[in-house]
Design a protein around this nucleic acid. Sequence first.
DNA 1: CATCATATCCAAAGCGCTTTGAATGCATTG
DNA 2: CAATGCATTCAAAGCGCTTTGGATATGATG
Lengths: 355, 355
Amino acid sequence: MNLRELSKVLGLSQTTVSRALNGYPEVSEATRQRVAAAARLHNYRPNTRAKGLATGRAMAIAHVIPVSSHHEMVNPVFADFIAGAGETYAAHGYDMMLSMAGHRKEENIYRDLAARRSVDGIIVHAPRLDDSRQALLQEIGLPFVVHGRFGGDTSGYNWLDMNNRRAFARATSFLLDLGHRRIGLINGLESMDFAARRRDGYCEALAIRGIAPAPELMISDEMTEHQGHGHCLTLLDRDDPPTALLTSSLITAMGVRRACNERGMTLGRDISLITHDDELSYFHNGRAEPDFTSLRSPVRDHGRRAAAMLLRVIGDPGCAPLHELLEADFNVGLSTGPVAATRSNPLRDARHASK
Amino acid sequence: MNLRELSKVLGLSQTTVSRALNGYPEVSEATRQRVAAAARLHNYRPNTRAKGLATGRAMAIAHVIPVSSHHEMVNPVFADFIAGAGETYAAHGYDMMLSMAGHRKEENIYRDLAARRSVDGIIVHAPRLDDSRQALLQEIGLPFVVHGRFGGDTSGYNWLDMNNRRAFARATSFLLDLGHRRIGLINGLESMDFAARRRDGYCEALAIRGIAPAPELMISDEMTEHQGHGHCLTLLDRDDPPTALLTSSLITAMGVRRACNERGMTLGRDISLITHDDELSYFHNGRAEPDFTSLRSPVRDHGRRAAAMLLRVIGDPGCAPLHELLEADFNVGLSTGPVAATRSNPLRDARHASK
DNA sequence: CATCATATCCAAAGCGCTTTGAATGCATTG
DNA sequence: CAATGCATTCAAAGCGCTTTGGATATGATG
C-alpha cells in the first residue's frame, strides 16, 4: 500500500493525504481523521527511501564501531551505548545504522556514508590520540558527535566525554590517602584518548605527592578479563608488588580479582583495587555494598546523551560546537582499604560479620 | 556530486554513466574507464535513497535486538553476533540497521520495517518458546532468518541454531560419567527457546541414567555474573549441595567461580563446572589450558552464517526454508573432575606442578 | 451583488537513481 | 550504393514521496 493507492481509496489527492498524515494545517480535521483511519486500516507507512529522497533527510544515524584489529574484538560497552542511543532515536523517529570498521578501510566507511547520503549524522566511537578521522570528518561535512575526544585541541567539534583525567586522579589520591605508595595501573590501550587521559590523571595525582610514576607498574592493553588476570599475576609476582591497583574496566577488574584470589589475597584487605565501571548490563557491581570501589559513568546514559546532542546539531547545523563533560561518581565499595591493614574496612567487616 | 552532474562533466548521458558504473556490457571499455576515473576523482557514490527507490531494493538488513525488559539489559552476545554479520554485509554491499526492541511495542517494529520497506530482510534474535513474532513475520512477508528457533514446528522458516539439547546432554553425561549425581543447572531464562532446549538435554541425559531431575537444582534466570554468583551461593549453602554445575554462559560461569572461591572451593577439584561458551571477544576462556570445561559455539561465526543465509534467501525468495544446526565443540578444561576427587585432574595437576 | 478572504483540496514538478525502448554512428555485406 | 548488423549512446519514464503554486468552494463583507 503506497500513497497513491491510499489516496485513490480515499478519493483524495496524494497531496492532501500526505499533508493530513504529516500534520499540515491546510487540511480539515474531518478529512485528517478519515485519512488517519484509512492509513491505520491499510497499515500504510511511507516508504523510507521515497520519503528520504523527497525530503533530503535520511532520518538515520550511523554508528561506526571499531573492531579491535588485534583479535577482532568488539568491546561490550558498545552494546550498552547503542542501547541508550537507540532509545533517543526511537523517540525521534530516527533509524540507526551500524558499520563495523575493521573489515574495510576505515576512511572509506566515512566517505561512503557521506557521499551516499545514507545518514544525517555520525556518532564516532573510540577516538584515538592521533586520529586521522578528525580531519576526515571535518572534510566530509556530515554532522558528527564524538563519544570521547580526539587528542589535541577539542574545541572544534561536538563531543561528549567523561572526565577521565579527573576520575583517575581522584581514585589515585584516594589510594594515596590510604597509605598506598606503589599503585599499579592496568589501563586500556593508551593509543586511545580515554586511556591516555586516565594515565595522565594517575600520574598527576602521584606527582602532587611527589611520587614518580613507576613504568613497571603501568600497563596498557586490551581490557579483557584474561588480560586483567595475566597482568595482575605479573605484577603480584614481582619482588616489589603494588599494594593497590587501578583498572580501566570492570571486566579487567574481574580478572584482577581472580588473580588476587589465586594468590590467596582478598581485595580490600591484602590489596586494594579501584576500577572504572561503565555499568554494563551484564556486569552489575552491586548497589548496596558494591564489590568494587569504582568510578561510575553509565555508558548507556552516554549513548542517550550523545544521540540527543547529535540530533540537536542536525536540527541546527550552524550552532557552535557542543561539549559535554560528565563527572564520574566515585563510589566506595569493598575492594579498597588502608595499606597493610587487616580489618579496618567497615563495609567488609560488616559483610563478614553478617554471615 | 550526483549522477546528473557527473554525466554533465563527462559529456555523457546519465544512462551511460549509470551503466558504466554498474558493469553493464553495452558500454565500451574506454568510456567505462573514463567514467570510473571521473567518479573516483569527484568522489561520486550513488545516493542510497535514490538507488533504493529506483531498484526497489533497500540493500539493508535489520537486526532487532531485544532489550531484556527486567532491567533493560542488552546481552553482550549481540555485539559479537553483529560483528560477524557485519562482515558478511560489508562484503556484499549491504547496510545493517539496528532496532532496539523494548522501547516500542515489539510488533510495531516489525510492521514498520516491512511497510516502510526500509530493509530487504530481518535477522530475528532471541526467539522465545511461545513467540508471537512467528506468525507476525509470516504475515508481513519479509525474508527473515531466526538466530535460534521458535518453539514448536521449526520447518516453516529459516533458522540457524546450535544443537543446544545435544550439547547439554553431552555435558551432563560427561559429569555423570565422572560420578556426579547431583548436578545443578544455572540456565538462562527458560522462556527462551535455547534455554528450554538446554534444560531438555540436561533432563534427557539424567533420565537415561534413571535420575529424576531435582527442581531445586534447576535455576532459570538472566545470565549475568551477578546472578551466577548469587545462585551458586544459594546452591552451595544447601544441605545437599550439588557436586557439579552447568551454566549457560561464560559470564554466569565467572560468577559461579567467584562464589566457589568465596566458599573455599576450587573448580575441578571440589566442584565441577561445565559452561556454554559463546566465545565473546572480551571473555576468552584460554586455548591451551582452558579454565572452564565448555561447550563452544562461536557466536560471531553464527552471525556470519546467519547473514549469509539471509542474503541467500533474499536472492532466491522462492527457495525452501533453510536450516543450519551447528554442533558445539565439547572442550575439556580445568573446571571438571571426578566427584569427591582430590587430585585426579591431569590438566590441573600439570598446571599446579609447573608453578 | 461583486469582492475578498479563508478553508480545503489538487495537478504537477522534482528528489537521484535505474531501465526501457529507440536513435545514432560505423563498418560490413550483397 | 543501399541494406544490414553491431556497438554505443541517449531521452524519457518511473520508483513513492514532498512541496510549490494554483484551483475551487464557501462564507463574510462592503
